[in-house]
C-alpha cells in the first residue's frame, strides 16, 4: 500500500501547481520599464506631417498602443480599442510599428480609428526604446509621464475590465489629489 501511493501523491502535488497555473497569465511579463519615465521619441504623425512627442501629453494619464497592420492579434484587439475609445476619454496614442503609411491608413479605415494621435515608426526605432518584443503591446502612463503598466499581447475584455479600467481610475484619482 505504501509504495503504490507514491504516484498518486506526486500527481496530487502536480495538480496543485496546475490549478495555480490556470489563474496566472504566462503572457504577462514584467517590464523593467515600469516605474520609469516614458521613453522619449519624436515621430511623424500618420495624418499630418508634424511630429509628436510624449511630453505633449504631460499632465494627463494616457495609453500607448503599439500595433501594425501585419499583426494578426492586433486585429483581434482593435474592436475592443475602438469600443473603449468611445466610452472613455483617456487619450490613446497609436504607434504604428514597422509598417507603411498606406497599409496603416487602409487598416484604420476598415476597422475604425480609436487613436487621438497616430504616429509612425517604420523602422522600429522607438519600439526598441520601449522594449517592444511583439506587437501588440500597450503601455499606460500616469500624469507625470511615468510608465505604470504594460500589457503584452492583445487586450481582452477581461484585461480591460479587471486591470485597465481600475488602473485608469486610480491614475485619475492620483492626479486630482495632487491638484487638490
Amino acid at each position: 500500500m505504501k509504495k503504490q501511493m507514491i504516484p498518486l501523491s506526486l500527481f496530487a502535488g502536480l495538480v496543485i501547481f496546475l490549478a495555480i497555473g490556470l489563474t496566472l497569465d504566462p503572457k504577462e511579463v514584467p517590464s523593467p520599464l515600469i516605474g520609469k519615465p516614458a521613453a522619449k521619441f519624436s515621430l511623424e504623425r500618420l495624418y499630418s506631417e508634424t511630429a509628436f512627442s510624449p511630453s505633449e501629453l504631460k499632465g494627463q494619464p494616457w495609453i500607448l498602443n503599439i500595433w501594425a497592420s501585419w499583426c494578426v492579434s492586433c486585429r483581434q484587439e482593435h474592436k475592443l480599442l475602438v469600443n473603449f475609445s468611445k466610452q472613455n476619454s483617456t487619450t490613446i496614442v497609436g504607434l504604428n510599428y514597422k509598417d507603411t503609411p498606406e497599409e496603416a491608413k487602409a487598416w484604420l479605415k476598415e476597422l475604425g480609428n480609436p487613436y487621438q494621435i497616430t504616429v509612425q515608426d517604420p523602422k522600429g526605432r522607438a519600439g526598441i526604446d520601449w522594449g517592444v518584443y511583439g506587437v501588440p503591446e500597450t503601455f499606460i502612463m500616469d500624469a507625470n509621464g511615468i510608465i505604470r503598466h504594460k500589457f503584452t499581447g492583445p487586450l481582452t475584455k477581461d484585461r480591460v475590465k479587471n486591470q485597465l479600467l481600475p488602473l485608469l481610475k486610480q491614475l485619475e484619482n492620483e492626479r486630482t489629489a495632487v491638484q487638490g
Binding site: 500500500m1 503504490q4 504516484p7 498518486l8 500527481f11 496530487a12 495538480v15 496546475l18 490549478a19
Partner: peptide, 16 residues
Amino acid sequence: LIFLVIVVGSSLSLYA
C-alpha cells in the same frame, strides 16, 4: 483540469 483529476486521480487511486 477537472477531467485530468478524475481520470488520473481515480486510476492512480485504484492502482494504489
